[in-house]
Amino acid sequence: MCGIVGLHLRTPELYPRLGTLLSGMLCEMGDRGSDSAGVAVYGDVTWSPPGQGCVSVADLGTGRREDIDLVARTVATALDDDVEGVAVADSHLLSSDASSEALLAAVRAAYPEAIIAGFGADVAVLKGVGHPRVLTESWGLADAQGWQGVGHTRMATESAVTPSGCHPYAVGPGQCMVHNGSFANHATIRRELRARGVVFDSENDTEVGARFIAALLAEGRDVESSLKELCRTFDGFYTLLVSDRDSFAVVRDAIACKPAVIAETDDWVAMGSEYRALAGLPGVENARIWEPEPEVVYAWSR
């Protein structure tokens, strides 16, 4: 079933409340998916320091828990540059003056089996196995700040309940995707992408959609045309939310059987699988609220 939420803040005065608002939205969707959850937070100065390359690691792949200072030193040696680190529950958030891509390469050199949750300027991605309420508390999400957040609660249907199977899938620089539904032809598209050299971290159908979008964006396409191409290519039932540090977009399949609600005010834009995810937002009583139309891409930018 799964639940997805997203919040794009237009008013800087609300930035300090991003984590609190996003936590409430995500926990409201807990009964739509209680086996795992994840968030992408844009703009938290502790988790993703401004002007730094950033990488979020969900699991080091070593089979043991390692101290964040040791992880930062190990990656710094591979990078040959200074690396700072923040431990958030089981995740390691790393940053450096180097580019996000260079830092990512160093993480993979130091920890070849690591599960990369996300990378890119101004973004931190956290995901894990467990109930959303437990996870948000362990992350201290309520204290996070920033201008945008995306979240997902998962009810697994076709791949393992592991950190690599959790959403968001953040496979391009600063990009992430969350998904409610299923792609019927994901195996065929995965084979086609692998033939083009794309490497996958899981067997999750959502990762196929995320890497399809990332490949189009890397070719210079914009988010709207990329999502329209996904609608033409993928079969199935889905509601998708795709974001990067500057934009936020939503699309549903041609039948639109997976629920979604969008609300907009002068201060924010938000979406959720159900209205109750939005009910606690400030000023929601004055918001323009609607259900997105089938195969129409709704997008907002900073």
Rank of each mutant, 00 (worst) to 15 (best):
V123E: 03
G30K: 14
E192Q: 11
Q175S: 14
M271H: 03
Q145K: 10
C2H: 05
K258A: 09
E137Q: 12
T74E: 13
V297S: 09
R190D: 12
V296C: 08
A117L: 02
W139G: 01
A160Q: 07
D253M: 05
V123Q: 03
S243M: 12
A256Q: 05
S164W: 09
H92N: 12
E203P: 13
Y111V: 04
A117S: 13
I262A: 14
G181N: 02
E28T: 11
V83W: 07
R245N: 05
A121F: 07
Q175P: 11
P173Q: 10
N204G: 02
A110S: 14
R232W: 14
F183I: 13
R133F: 11
Q52F: 11
V297M: 00
A87R: 12
S91F: 07
D35W: 00
S91E: 08
L230C: 05
V125K: 01
Q175V: 09
W47G: 02
G118F: 00
V269L: 02
A299K: 11
I213Y: 14
S23H: 12
G120L: 07
G197A: 08
A72N: 04
G283K: 03
Y111L: 01
T157W: 01
S301D: 15
G120Q: 14
V129D: 13
L60E: 03
D266I: 07
A114H: 02
G165M: 05
R245E: 11
L281I: 03
S301I: 15
D143N: 14
A287N: 05
R32D: 02
C54H: 04
L217P: 00
D80H: 14
P282N: 02
A114S: 15
E274I: 02
S95M: 01
S23A: 15
L230P: 01
S225F: 09
G149C: 03
